[in-house]
Nucleic acid binder design. Sequence first.
DNA 1: TAAATTTGACCGTC
DNA 2: GACGGTCAAATTTA
Length: 294
Amino acid sequence: MDNLGDSSRKRAIEELLRGRDCAEQLSSVITGSCEKGSSATPFAKKLVKEVLMSFTNSLLLLNNNSTSGSHGVSNVQVWDSPKSEDSLESNCKSSTVKERRGCHKRRRTERTREKESEAPIDDGHQWRKYGQKDILNAQFPRHYYRCTHRFDQGCQATKQVQRVQEDPILYKTIYYGEHTCKSLANPQIILDPMSPSSTSKFLSFNNSFPTPSKQECPFLSSSFPSSVERKCKEEVPPSTSSNDYLISSDLTFDSSPRQVTLSSSTPDSEYNSVDLSDVFYGMDDLSEPLFQLR
DNA sequence: TAAATTTGACCGTC
DNA sequence: GACGGTCAAATTTA
C-alpha cells in the first residue's frame, strides 16, 4: 500500500474502524437473536466474523505499511481488567430521577479503554456532551460525553476527552462501557449478493462522514485557542461526493503472510498508525480458521 | 423549533 | 471537605 499517501491511509483506516464497529454491532444483534431462539443462522454468524476479519486484516496491513510517525492516531488502547462492573444503574436504581442527580460511583473499577490521538477522532458513534470540568492540577478541562442513544436505546457508553498536559497536541479519550446502541451514524455495509463472482465487493459508507461539528470536535469552545479550532476543523476533510469504497474481492487472508488488496475510490486523507490492540478489540471470538474471499 | 452545547449545582466517593 | 461525575436549565446552533 505504499502508493497510499498518509492522508489516504488515514481515511482508509478510519473507514475500516467504522466498518468493524458496525460489524461488531451486527454480531451482537445476531448473537442476541440466536439466544432468543430466532432464525439467525450459523452462516449469518460466520459472515459477520468474516466481515470483522476483513476489516481487521485490512487495518493490519495498513498499519504495517504506515510509518512510525508520532502524530496522527497514535492509539494507546487498554481495556482495564473488569474488576467489578459496578454501574451507575446499580448504584442509583432505587432512586427517583430527581434524587439521582449527581448520583454516581467513581469509575476506577469500571472497564475502560484509552486512546490518545492528535485530534478528537470520530469513532463512529454519536456522542452528546453533557459536562465539562476543570480537573485539579490539570491544565486543560475534561469533557464528558455520553452516547446520543442513551435514552432511546439505553446505551450506557460514555467517554471523557482531555488534552494531554505534557503534549497538548494530543487528546486523551477514555471510553467507559460499551455501546449497546445501533447507531444510525454507523456505516451501512452493502454487499451485493447477486454477484458472488464479481471482481469487487461494494461497500457503501452512507453518512460515514457526518459534517464536522462540535460534537466531534469538542475543542471548538472558547476555552481553546483559535489555532486549535482551526486545526480541528482541518482534521476532517470536506465531505466528498461519495463515501463509497470499492474493495477487491480478490481478498486473501492467511495466518501468515497476510495478503490484502484494497482499492479505494476516495480522495486522500491522512492516518499514520493504529494500535493493533485496537484492531483486535472485541475479536475474541474469532478463533475459527481464516477464510478466503474469491 | 428541535437538537446540541454550556455551565453552575448537586451528590457520591475518597 | 475536596474532588470528580452527572444533572438540568439556559443558551446557542442548525
